[in-house]
């Protein structure tokens, strides 16, 4: 194995890998935050008394958990491009090719599929809060926003964090799939490097190790966060 390929600067791929790792981290972070937004919205739908909202949320989680992420990416990427082209042709008479922003669409794809898992995690966490807490908040006259931010969020965070840690790991690993539609993150860097140097093992094992380090670091962050969220709870 020739390690000089991984040097820094023009000769090596070290700096490209560093940039790729940053890109992976950026996509994963945006996608994770997006999944929290989707998760909160659809968990609220699932817990609502409105039958239609519940049905919408059920369809969302069933479909996005039941079909492969790769297919979601292909569908939104190629289907979205086609849709935009139809719109552009109909409204502006423009019939050229439209390039979708890879970062934004990739984030949306991963955010959507991770959001389906977040929905279930958040729903479970909210259900774990005793009803009496909400009733007590209402009894002392808290409005809905106060009940949400002061009662629901801090307490459900405690229950949701372990599950959300798993969702984060999912999102981090799924970013590798966006490399297939051309975003230059860790995987794409490795594929490009192995193509031009004919050293596939060297490059893919590097990608493998970078993912391992990212997963390890983020696991530590989540353990910290769990300890922080549980600081008011007595544990054996």
């Amino acid at each position: 194995m020739e390690l000089s390929y991984l040097g820094w600067g023009d000769a090596g791929w070290g700096d490209e890998f560093a940039r790729g790792a940053l890109m992976t981290f950026a996509v994963a972070t945006c996608a994770f935050l997006l999944s929290l937004v989707f998760g909160t919205i659809f968990a609220a739908f699932k817990l609502s008394s409105n039958l239609l909202l519940r049905a919408v949320a059920d369809v969302y989680t069933t479909i996005l958990r039941g079909i492969p992420e790769l297919l979601v990416i292909y569908l939104i990427f190629f289907g979205g491009g086609q849709l935009l082209q139809t719109i552009a042709l109909g409204l502006f008479g423009y019939d050229g090719y439209i390039d979708l922003p890879v970062f934004g669409v990739g984030t949306l794809c991963i955010g959507l599929s991770a959001g389906a898992y977040s929905t279930e995690v958040i729903r479970g966490a909210v259900l774990a809060i005793p009803r009496g807490q909400i009733e007590a908040a209402r009894a002392i006259g808290m409005n809905q926003g106060q009940r949400f931010w002061r009662i629901l969020v801090p307490q459900s965070a405690r229950y949701a964090l372990p599950g959300l840690g798993n969702v984060w790991q999912f999102a981090l690993k799924d970013t590798s799939l966006i490399s297939i539609v051309g975003l230059v993150e860790i995987m794409r860097t490795a594929a490009l490097g192995s193509g031009s140097t004919k050293q596939p093992f060297t490059f893919f094992i590097t990608a493998f190790l970078i993912f391992l380090v990212l997963a390890w670091l983020s696991q530590r962050v989540f353990l910290r966060a769990e300890a922080w969220a549980n600081r008011g709870v007595r544990s054996a």
Binding site: K173, L177, S179, M187, A207, F211, Q219
Partner: peptide, 8 residues
Amino acid sequence: RSTPLLVQ
């Protein structure tokens, strides 16, 4: 468990 299947 902590690396993507695609990389594997």
